[in-house]
């Protein structure tokens, strides 16, 4: 019941944001907005595993790229249908291909979820640090595979041309923004629902003390697999529309370091204990970066994010949300 209300409220907020931006009539706002909202999804997805269960995933960029390249694969398949199949089969396939983006998002989610599950299954029986190291490894293995896979463009990249015509939306960027905004609402609803559920309590028990969690009857391995699968699926979903958004996709852009860094830094700076933290972190850092990109180089930009991450993990372990909560609590008891 409460979840439904939360869903409706966030949907209303999303609509206000969307129509607010539309009122300006500047396409660039949708481009900048898309990037920020995409980070909301990534940060929330990272936090479901990292913040709730305490397992660090350094491979966010890999999961993001899995989503992006699962779309590239399907889009490229669509362009080959005439060469590969007889006329009648091709005609039948062409009624569904090229697949609409929401379908690409769902497929990316399935692929990302499977990879998340596989990663978890291989490493989660071991000490926590091994999982983190394995996620670093995953990013390099997948990047190497993509670089050597000519079908999706290899190291030189591939052009992805967005359909020109749109219904309702004035531009393709606007459509992609609206889609990503909807995904952000979805991920926040999922994160918040988990927090207040039996699953959320199980995650918290794992984060605090895994042995004690087992002794209390928590099936820790299963729960961790749920978290890695869900988190991986959501990250890949965030990457699915990326080829259409950027138009020309290269391994270096899809596996970009900024995704790995931001999806850790944003929840850490915002606060990892609730759904609000990643949201606050993503909106704050994402907006700052969009503003700074205009004025300073992207390297300086990332340097600031890195420094903020270090400062926050040392000084404010519970992030901005934690700081505010402490403040409020102190005032209440005064």
């Amino acid at each position: 019941m409460r979840n439904t209300i939360f869903f409706l409220v966030s949907l209303a907020v999303a609509l206000v944001i969307y129509f607010g931006l539309r009122a300006f009539g500047i396409d660039y706002l949708f481009v900048a907005g898309y990037v920020i909202v995409q980070y909301v999804v990534l940060a929330t997805a990272w936090n479901i595993l990292g913040g709730y269960t305490g397992y660090v995933n350094f491979g966010s960029a890999a999961f993001f790229a899995v989503g992006a390249y699962s779309s590239v694969t399907l889009i490229t398949i669509a362009t080959h249908i005439e060469d590969w199949f007889s006329e009648s089969v091709a005609a039948a396939l062409n009624t569904v291909f090229p697949l609409p983006i929401p379908v690409l998002v769902v497929i990316a989610g399935i692929v990302g979820g499977l990879i998340g599950y596989g990663m978890g299954y291989l490493t989660l029986r071991l000490r926590g640090a091994f999982f983190a190291i394995a996620t670093l490894a995953l990013a390099v293995v997948l990047a190497t595979l993509v670089v050597n896979w000519e079908f999706v463009g290899g190291s030189s990249g591939a052009y992805v041309i967005a359909p020109a015509e749109m219904i309702f939306f004035k531009s393709y960027k606007e459509y992609l923004f609206a889609l990503m905004l909807l995904m952000a609402v979805g991920s926040l609803v999922v994160a918040r629902a988990i927090e207040r559920s039996k699953l959320g309590y199980g995650f918290a028990a794992i984060r605090d003390d895994e042995l004690a969690a087992e002794a209390s009857g928590v099936p820790t391995l299963n729960l961790k697999l749920v978290a890695t699968t869900l988190s991986g699926a959501m990250m890949a979903m965030a990457g699915a529309p990326f080829p259409y958004f950027i138009g020309f996709i290269q391994p270096s852009s899809a596996f970009g370091l900024e995704y790995a860094v931001n999806s850790i830094a944003m929840p850490m700076i915002g606060g990892t204990l609730s759904w609000m933290g990643p949201l606050v972190g993503a909106v704050l850092l994402g907006t700052l970066q969009q503003l700074a990109n205009v004025t300073i180089s992207s390297a300086v930009n990332l340097l600031i994010v890195g420094l903020l991450l270090i400062v926050f993990v040392i000084i404010a372990p519970n992030g901005i949300v934690g700081l505010v909560q402490d403040r409020l609590r102190a005032r209440r008891t005064k």
Binding site: G50, I264, G306
Partner: peptide, 30 residues
């Protein structure tokens, strides 16, 4: 002082080293 003593090395300690790795690389690039 920041992580081991507080028992937070698994999550925040890792993020700390990740930040150090990242900042070093960006500084060298700059």
């Amino acid at each position: 002082l920041s992580f081991e003593k507080r028992g937070q090395e698994s999550l925040r300690g890792l993020a700390f080293f990740f930040g150090v790795l990242f900042v070093t690389e960006v500084v060298l690039i700059l």
